[in-house]
Write a protein that binds this DNA or RNA. Sequence first.
DNA 1: TTCTAATTAATAATGATTACGATTTACCTT
DNA 2: AAGGTAAATCGTAATCATTATTAATTAGAA
Lengths: 136, 136
Amino acid sequence: MNLTNAWNILKDNGYKETSKRNQILELFANDERYLTARDLLDVMQKDYPSMSYDTVYRNLATFVSLGILEETELSGERHFRMQCESDHHHHHFICMDCGKIKEIPVCPMDMVGAALPAYEIANHKFEIYGKCPECK
Amino acid sequence: MNLTNAWNILKDNGYKETSKRNQILELFANDERYLTARDLLDVMQKDYPSMSYDTVYRNLATFVSLGILEETELSGERHFRMQCESDHHHHHFICMDCGKIKEIPVCPMDMVGAALPAYEIANHKFEIYGKCPECK
DNA sequence: TTCTAATTAATAATGATTACGATTTACCTT
DNA sequence: AAGGTAAATCGTAATCATTATTAATTAGAA
């Protein structure tokens, strides 16, 4: 996902182009790590000192609902990052030191679906945590 | 994990036997679902109206650190349940309706470890969410 | 029974997230 | 280009889960 794609999606869904929105998206486009709402606000307030949490959270929710950002829970806090480009379903290794992620091309559901015949599977979560080669 | 096991672990680690602790453990022993701190407090306060959050959270932390309870994050809240009896590593299907869980005997890490040679893997999370046969 | 450290109660503080009325802004229409 | 309108934002307060603090209580040992 890049800036152009993101704006196309936003425009298609009737969202207006604002400088705040654009800067939030730029931050995500230039950072492969997961960021918290506070991370965002801290950076944004350098350019927009009056930026409020409401704006941050509202836009994060919008972006996630449109598939522009993806979200996960790390140590009790919601973290966000740009949705991956990959067209195939995949999961993530997350470095607990630098926060960088690596795509894991396999999905355990391939094996598991058959083991739960009578169950209705809505979604699943698979994440690996540790240290990337650079941080090790 | 049952009450007797739990108390053995607690005693071995020098924790005292209190009626609150016992009732918390009884609640978990009789409920296979994941419970929040608030769930616990609501039930406990029927017998101990003055029960405080401090007591709930402190004991939950103790139980988790001793391996008596296991913990997961569901829709932004910490949830707890009795540690499974199973001696082999496994994961869970969680019913989003009734909260019941089912053990999934396979672990995706078997396949994945080799795909991340230079990475130091600390831990992982794999959970499946949906509806169990009864709730479907 | 008495003593002492562990445990708990009562309450306040913290931190993340959500909510809301007032104001401002993007952008459509004229 | 000016005006209108709904969306977006600000400023701030409320809410919710969780953690911290201090004083009082209690379990278990001496």
